[in-house]
Amino acid sequence: MFNVLGNFLTLSSFGESHGEAYGGIITNFPAGLEIDIEKVQLELDRRKPGQSAIVTQRKEGDKVRFLSGIFDGKSTGTPIGFIVENENQRSKDYDHIAQAYRPSHADYTYDQKYGIRDYRGGGKSSARETLNWVVAGALAKQLLPEIEINAYVSSVGEIFCEKPYQDLDFSKTENNIVRCPDEKTAERMIERIKEIKKEGNTIGGTVTCIIKNVPVGLGEPIFNKLHAELGKAMLNINACKGFEYGSGFCGAKMTGKEHNDLFNQDGTTQSNLSGGIQGGISNGMDIYFRAAFKPVATILRPQESINKDGESVTVEGKGRHDPCVVPRAVPIVESLAAFVLADMYLINKTRKL
């Protein structure tokens, strides 16, 4: 199983949803950096379940414990090992799918690939895996403190935040449970998610991420283009179905004259349809992208499916599940973006004396 994130700065992760714990090992993290463990925990608290009425009610403390690589509050340059224990599994909620496959879930593909699957909470396919990524991303943010990364929920179903990101106050993102900095749009999103939850159904949405103060030169010209690394990271998030940066798919409707970002004399550009990346390399302008998330596959209503023997069965979700994943995806998107940027930053440093 490929379970390593990054190229030079790497995270190797382990754990299952209903196992003893999650954890990971981060390698090539520079020595001598002061580590604020409280900031790492704060990022985990943003991701953890049970935060509000519109997310899963699984109760987990998600307390990180560092095992190595940090001494006297500073990174030592050796691998950073950490662990987060599971506390509130309730595995019996999944007994009914021990032999049955949930539609659009990873049940069938895992069973076919490995010949065995941990059906409790989805095992390795559970989104609880992302807490490892948040720990790594929180450390990466401290490695690049000058870079500002702000993600927010930009749509839920057919409800969109229509304001351009330049008009949004990102300090308001955490002021509501859906994590949309536009208060009126947030209220509509919350009501829609509550309606969907009452129906035993789920709904999708998008997360937009804005990255400011990125130095020029991050990213590689061929197979490790910065936008490709960001896209790869985002598309590894559970339920992520799409990624676009800069003008994205709208750029396909434009002419070159309309799309080209003309230069100012200082090297900045008059527009930024390139999304802060040209030729796979950061150009110093804001990087912005959007990730699309499908509705959560597990719904609390009957669906026709099959079991391991190919027989027709009816499955119905039980237990605690997110009616909409996007509010909790916000810190995950930020964390992965930070880790990618830190990885590219360290690679870039190896080329300069």
Rank of each mutant, 00 (worst) to 15 (best):
N283A: 04
M254A: 12
F243Y: 15
K257F: 06
K257R: 12
A239T: 15
I277R: 01
T269Q: 09
E244F: 08
H259W: 05
N238M: 12
Y245L: 10
Q265T: 10
N272C: 04
K257Q: 15
N260P: 00
A239D: 11
H259F: 13
F263C: 06
S247A: 15
G275Q: 09
I281C: 03
N238P: 02
G248D: 07
K257H: 12
K257N: 13
C240M: 14
C240D: 08
M254H: 02
I237R: 03
A252E: 14
G246I: 11
K241H: 06
T255W: 01
S282Y: 06
S271L: 11
G275P: 11
G246L: 10
M254G: 02
G251W: 06
G246E: 08
G280V: 10
D261F: 08
N272Q: 00
I281T: 03
Q270G: 00
S274P: 00
G276Q: 02
C240H: 01
G248K: 10
A239H: 07
N238A: 10
N283E: 05
K253R: 14
G275F: 13
Q270H: 01
K241C: 08
G242E: 11
F243S: 05
D261M: 11
K257T: 15
L273C: 10
G248T: 08
G279T: 02
G280E: 09
G280F: 09
N283C: 05
S282P: 07
D266S: 09
H259G: 02
M254V: 00
I237M: 04
F243E: 04
E244M: 09
D261A: 10
Q278H: 05
C250G: 01
G280R: 04
H259Q: 15
E244P: 02
F243V: 07
A239K: 06
G279Q: 08
G279I: 07
I277L: 10
N238S: 11
F243R: 05
G284I: 07
E258Q: 15
S247N: 10
N260C: 10
N238F: 01
L262D: 12
